[in-house]
Design a protein around this nucleic acid. Structure first.
Lengths: 139, 139
DNA sequence: CGACAAACGCAACAATGTTGCAAAAACAAT
DNA sequence: ATTGTTTTTGCAACATTGTTGCGTTTGTCG
């Protein structure tokens, strides 16, 4: 685990620090996405708020995580898959937000559909957010 | 215009006040969506910040407007079509965010696709956000 | 017009996000 | 391993955004 974390950071051209290790660990342990405040809470008193902001920013820039828009002003972040590197994002899956447990998960197996837009509109990226009840809550 | 505004408010069970008139007017004049700060700026010094919050909240609850998630922590709001009333939202169109002019518009003519989700997941609402260059910016 | 309810403005506060800078930690080279 | 350089961190101060309570004003309805 330790090893995997350090390797992930290095592969993404990030120097290995205890803060980054800790935050990346949170992502690896967590099934699903984390918001900024989730991270602050889970990390406890160990980090300055500013460090969390800057770490997420760095992760984003290097393509280690991607962000998920929400309707409640609290962006979520989730780990990218391995074939996702800086600049070259491969973020074409659907995001599911559970109205029961509040969790946000990436449905990697559901691809975003191809849309036919009106004349004049050119799509660069398509984001699909599904709201509903997730597998665990339906069980 | 005046008349239309007042009528719209009444139809949605909202008492007619100068603040609500003004904000609703902004929506009618604007092609596209508005963020909270857009409204604050456009309304000038005329209103208290709190009034804007409460007005948007009221409009949302009554189904006069709907909100559009974004990836930058700044929810946008847009007018609902006529067949949209409190409780019964008919918000099944795609939202387009222009990376050039920054505008957000509702593409009423593009319906959100039906998705096939993994076993166990039940969808309640699907939101599609398209990023790209809009008609006006491509012209 | 007058009574009642709703909305407003203000103030105070809480939460969230940003910036500059000095201390500390990581990295690279000897 | 030690030193020098660069990057990251924590702190403090600040800006922005969102929330709550309350007295006053405004709209609504009889």
């Amino acid at each position: 685990m330790e090893k995997r974390i350090d390797e992930l950071l290095k592969r993404n051209q990030l120097s290995v620090t205890s803060g980054r290790r800790k935050i990346l660990e949170l992502f690896l342990l967590q099934e699903g996405a984390l918001s900024h405040s989730d991270i602050e809470k889970k990390a406890g008193e160990k980090f300055d708020r500013v460090t969390v902001y800057r770490t997420l920013q760095a992760f984003l820039e290097k393509g280690l995580i991607h962000n998920i828009p929400t309707a409640d002003n609290s962006i979520r972040y989730a780990l990218c898959k391995d074939d996702c590197t800086a600049g070259h994002h491969r973020d074409d899956h659907v995001h599911f937000i559970c109205s029961s447990c509040g969790n946000t998960v990436c449905l990697e197996e559901v691809n975003v559909p191809v849309l036919k837009l009106p004349k004049g509109f050119v799509a660069e990226q398509v984001e699909v957010l599904v709201n509903g009840v997730c597998k665990s809550c339906n069980a």
